[in-house]
Amino acid sequence: MAEIPKEEYILRCTSACAGCSSSLVLRYILKAAGPDSVLVVPACCTSVIQGIYPNTAMNIPVYNVAFASAAAVASGMSAAFRSVGKKTNVICYAGDGGTVDIGIQALSGALERGTDFLYICYDNEAYSNTGMQRSGSTPLGAKTTTTPEGKRDAKKDLDRIVQAHNLPYMATACSAYPLDLYKKVQKALAIRGPTFIHILAPCPPGWRYPSEATIEMGKLAVKTGMWVLYEREYGKLSVTGASKGALAKPLPVGEYLTRQGRFKGIDAATIDYVQQSVRDNLARIAREVEGVC
């Protein structure tokens, strides 16, 4: 971790919950981005975490915007900065609801138009800021306040939607692997044009696990293959970090699911279904890495 700068762009006393991984990943994102950056934040946990006016815990400009609008605001901001010759990084930092649900139209438009920006979705798999309602990114079987018996639909495959826009760089990351994330942010920001990073960000109160288990939960997601770390440079897929091992020999998904209160009472058939989905997904990725498809 020696290469990670000591400068902090998130100051002390945020309003984050104990064990919040989304504020942890933001710390590393901003270290990678540096001070000449603007964060565009739609409604999400980060709207609250940054602090309450007249205070802010953020040491870079943060532009808070309406829920559906982050990628479009970034389009205008990036165009304006480039017009006047500024290289300022424009980074959207949005939750899963603001990305896969209400914000997906603006995101799609900004990607299609070749906007020079980095869009980061930190995915805690629900509308956590409003108290854990189901989002399109909530996984099958997870209990939320609007899916009290467990979600009956699968998690929306955001990455394949984004991939269809043929952007120069996209990646996944997980809060449990900050160095992997740090490198990906640096790589994304070095590329001109639209770039995208999707980060799995475990949420203790939402996923119902002890706050000290946040890092472990992220590692289990990766080791079971529920979440795969990869990057896609100009279309070419590479699996990164801990996912290389998981691809060859994943842990059973039960080891991840049964550690979280949100999956309490999940039946064996659903676990089998999830296991098979993970197997299929890992096989698809392995085939692509090997150049079979």
Partner: peptide, 24 residues
């Protein structure tokens, strides 16, 4: 000018907000 052919009016005003926020 940079002409941004947005995908909706919600986004056209959003893009104007992003641009004007930088002082242009």
């Amino acid at each position: 000018a940079r002409y941004i052919p947005v995908e909706s009016e919600h986004s056209s005003m959003a893009a104007c907000i992003g641009a004007a926020a930088t002082g242009v």
